[in-house]
Write a protein that binds this DNA or RNA. Structure first.
Lengths: 238, 238
DNA sequence: TCAATGTGTGAATGCCTATAACTTAATCCG
DNA sequence: CGGATTAAGTTATAGGCATTCACACATTGA
């Protein structure tokens, strides 16, 4: 079976195959970058590659399967960018969080349609990317945020979760999530801060990419910066 | 000219026309609700209405024009829901903001694909809804948030905008936006709070609708509630 | 060398948007 | 009322798309 040979000794055929697959994905990503996920066309890809549209089905089961791989790739690319920013940033916690947040926005601005591909896909069109890869990538991204929320006050950063009535339940669920997903178990407050960081930054970026902030005339970069500062204060990292 | 008669005396023909237009939009909205904007099909609408696909072009210039109207309608519907929640809520500021925030999420959950239609449209597919209506509706929504951020401490709610270096510039832009768009000119801090409320709530809802929070197992409603509380505190309304 | 398997083609199906030419029905005005 | 105008619908057509099927060719491995 070729299944076994693929792992050990990549056949000439297998190499060719992977290369073709990669080219298809490259061209598809180009179309995504150009006009969003909606303008990915198997016909156009085949035309550009000088082969018949039907041949593409040797490499991807369907258009949606191809898009699903693009989603997974984009997730991974974003996670890589975040990790790289975290690793490249200087020591103190505040600067690292700022660097990662900055990298997050920069990635989104550099690949706006990829960002939209990742974050608007699920509900609209019924394509479900390989959970293995996307969840793993999301985990990696969240890990970066969490690692960067480390600071002098990280240990007791349980925040005000247990104050309100709903807070107790929320704290419990977050704790459960932490136990399930995080290898080193972090304090609940820090996990919550990670979620908060993600949702708030995503809110701004999502609106910026949709040009929904343009009507106000306010520079999204400044709003973003202010939000990062706010998160820093909340994390007591500043 | 029929143009003049439309305003004063709606002809029988004109009434029929508007009714047909409405039915087309209804069916299109049904398709949006069912499978997102991507699954709106003029062919299917025509089939369901028992007429030829070409006839629809008497009522809408193109599929995109139809979608653009749906976007505008959805914007208006959301704004209405918010206004209604604000008007129906009891006096004190905290409860009113909570009511409006709740109404925002409820509307999104009740019409998820409409929410996505409004907030993911712009960049992905190149359809631009009538700026008149959408901007007006967005203005109405923002007005509701701003009106509800009124409280005992609203007057001096200039927050911490002028502290950081970038804060000054941001404050200036927000002030400019307020002068341009808001009839009664509100304090900068309150305008900023309005933006903050919108972007943070949108971030959570956008992720919830995309099922991106599901992987954590944390109930989005609780996260939302916590974010609303955080906004209340920041507005010193609680 | 020969059978098996991978890779590609062409044709066909059935969607879809959109346009053009044409027919029928309603409306308006003299 | 009756003819001219306009709206609203039709069929036909062009072009694009994803997807499937039957078939041909080439590569591979025993």
């Amino acid at each position: 079976m070729t299944v076994e040979s693929r792992a050990e000794a990549p056949t000439r055929r297998e190499r060719q195959r992977q290369q073709t697959r990669a080219e298809i994905k490259d061209r598809a990503m180009g179309q995504v970058a150009g006009g969003g996920a909606g303008s990915v066309s198997l016909n156009a890809i085949a035309r550009a590659m000088g082969m018949s549209p039907a041949a593409l089905y040797r490499y991807f089961a369907s258009r949606d399967a191809l898009l699903a791989e693009l989603v997974a790739d984009a997730c991974g690319s974003l996670a890589d960018a975040l990790r790289q920013a975290a690793d490249g940033a200087p020591g103190p916690g505040a600067a690292r969080l700022a660097a990662v947040a900055h990298a997050y926005r920069q990635w989104a601005l550099a690949h706006p349609n990829s960002y939209l591909l990742v974050f608007q896909t699920s509900s609209g069109s019924g394509l479900d990317p390989d959970p293995e890869r996307t969840v793993a990538a999301a985990q990696r991204s969240m890990d970066v945020f969490l690692s960067v929320l480390d600071g002098p006050a990280a240990g007791h950063a349980d925040l005000d979760l247990d104050e309100a009535g709903a807070g107790a339940e929320l704290a419990a669920q977050i704790r459960a999530w932490g136990l399930r997903a995080q290898t080193p178990d972090l304090p609940t407050g820090r996990l919550y801060l990670g979620l908060l960081t993600w949702t708030r930054l995503h809110g701004l970026i999502s609106l910026e990419l949709g040009h929904h902030l343009a009507a106000t005339g306010v520079d999204p970069a400044l709003l973003y910066e202010a939000e990062v500062q706010s998160l820093l204060q909340r994390a007591r990292l500043s």
